[in-house]
Design a protein around this nucleic acid. Structure first.
Lengths: 221, 221, 221, 221
DNA sequence: AATGAATGAGCATTCATTCAT
DNA sequence: GATGAATGAATGCTCATTCAT
């Protein structure tokens, strides 16, 4: 899940930010870093590999970055920024019932997974390698995303559309575990599109919350 | 999820395996490695840290291991060996209906999580840092564990106890994502025991599969 | 016996081979390695010493090499490549009689010893520390060099210019033992040039083979 | 060329000298060390390998030695002690002519090579790894051995049995290079005994010195 | 005599980072 | 913008050596 171009400039970084000069180059680099981090993990990834993937020598990469961590931050923060976008786009559905809103969220989330597959895992895995300040930036976004789902869950419990016995905290975590896990095993090469996958996952999640089968909608086609 | 003591000797490793001489020492070391790998990730973990945690100098650790990878393998393989145990212990329930069997599996799994918390993530994260041979050993166990759940799911679809519209492959992955995600956010320090957590997760999963609420059992207390 | 500059680029090595970019630097490094290996032996030689001798820090040396063994190979293989050159330069003498050819070979060999003294011993001593593939490359060259001398010996026995009772295998080994031993005790600081030494050794060897004193030429001046 | 038992106790070492307790054990250990040093070179040889070859653990070897260097010294000094014996045994031939004396020396030397093959190379190769004191002890023996041959050569030149044009220093080195080189290529598995080899080498050397073919004796059978 | 365990200094190698050109 | 060269700190691993038992 690469960062959407408009969210991709180094944020909270100050300095010359060379990315502003050639945004497309910066995006290439971040994508390359995403691939390499995904394959080897942040610590084992080599700057040289990332540079080679965009046709540079390792020394040259430092024209674009100040440190390896910049790339991790760009990816992890970008991932979360996209998550924020997913969450905020829900405005149109604000008046809908909780199952509909949660289902729509799941579909939007997986839809974006499809656009930039592969980097969700990095966010989970290597978040702690960031500096405390940057971790805080990311954790704040994460909390807002989390809160969005949890609010829906609590609303649903309150209005009876979800089972009263569920624990909002646990269930919210379960939902994100399901969503974040996807990119580790799903490959669109399968005879299944992201849209179809989203349907399955939406059902799994809503059922898991005890939603009325009627509300969830018809069985998958 | 550290390895249960009786399953912990280096398996499939050949060589002098000094761990067999002093199993407690070997267990201490593997536990220490698990902690450090969990905190920093495999690549960033330093042998020196692991050694210090058991009161040794880094060089001394090599009396017990041949390489850092040995420790990763001990943890990852041990984790999976415990998973195999969880899967195989289901013999008594073989004649039960699929929801009961799956629910019991979830409870056993989380029960073991409680015994040795923390290392499940390592297995998911750093599996690829193992040698191909060792990866194969682990992947084989993983496939068997996976197959156990998938078989239950398919049985349940066939006999109508799970929704006919679900995809066994997707759903099995969803289940493991939920189970493996737990150790990343659940801390027993919370006002919730592993048993109570297991109840919640059991319900979430079974409902997600479309099981009859009657079968799932009473709402959580 | 260091490698002649023109033969010195890493041969049969694949990879980026930065030495090709700055041959003089590569030669400096190989010479430094030759000195250090000669003084301490391959195993006891420290990369740090070699680096320091060319004004680098040990880490920097890895810009030029992939491993310490690369340096050993460059020296040992270079030595043998020079030997091949010595052997092949004999074309002009092909029609001469065996004693003349062998005498000329001895003179050429020692002449080259004089150009790059000191590393012949390394080739003999630490050949076995090379990887099997590289050993094979070197052993092949060695066999060709050996064969060149043996052929002359056999020709000489056949045409009566060498004693009929000698064993070509033994005598060829004796000749190379004499030639290879030189660099361990001869220092041109002595009141003797390499040319004079070569004359003595040529006589010793030809006499050893039972050549007609007339053929060998006049006593040394 | 292992050390003859009676010459094998650690010499010039002072201390408890445990070898005196079980001479045969000490010999076993020195032989094992000789094998390992010969295979890998002194620096690359591991105490553990030597210990394993005599059925001990590496720590246990220190009951017999004070340091790895003790073993090198035992071998190198032992080798030279044998050389001294070879040289001194010549008493009976003292009145013989130089070619006879030198020929007899070659035969004795190779005869002893046959008794303990393989370690001559170590002496040449790793002499410099000894402490200065021990190097001095060995170099003194070496000088005496060298001097023995050189004296014969000079006598031979003086009385006309060797060519007047040869340089005693060079030729003596040639002779030892031939003798010391043997163990690197000769294996008694060949269809040739040490006695036969000695004959060939004797002829090569004496001819090399310009001795009268009549003096050298009949061609090899 | 022998061992198991530990030590600690040393070494090859890696790699993020810098910088003059 | 990009590069080649160099840096230096870090880190996995080795191994001679010690010593209580």
């Amino acid at each position: 899940m690469a960062v959407a171009p408009e969210a991709r400039r180094p944020i909270g970084q100050g300095g010359r930010s060379p990315g502003s000069l050639r945004p497309e180059r910066w995006n290439e680099i971040v994508d390359a870093a995403g691939d390499v981090f995904d394959e080897k993990g942040y610590a084992a990834a080599r700057i040289e590999d990332i540079a080679a993937r965009v046709g540079l020598l390792k020394g040259s990469l430092y024209y674009y970055i100040d440190s390896k961590e910049d790339l991790l931050f760009a990816i992890v923060d970008g991932n979360h920024s996209r998550g924020i976008v997913v969450v905020e786009e829900g405005a149109a559905l604000e008046s809908a019932d909780p199952p509909t809103r949660l289902g729509a969220f799941v579909e939007r989330w997986i839809g974006i997974l499809g656009a930039n597959p592969g980097y969700a895992a990095i966010a989970e895995r290597d978040l702690r390698r960031l500096s405390p300040e940057r971790q805080a930036i990311v954790m704040d976004k994460r909390a807002r995303i989390h809160r969005f789902v949890r609010d829906i869950v609590e609303d649903g419990i309150a209005d009876g559309s979800f089972d009263a016995g569920i624990d909002p905290g646990i269930v919210t975590n379960n939902v994100f575990d399901v969503l974040n896990g996807i990119s580790q095993w799903f490959h669109p090469a399968r005879p299944l599109t992201y849209e179809q996958l989203a349907e399955h996952v939406r059902c799994f999640v809503l059922r898991g919350l005890g939603a009325d089968p009627e509300t969830i909608g018809p069985a998958l086609p």
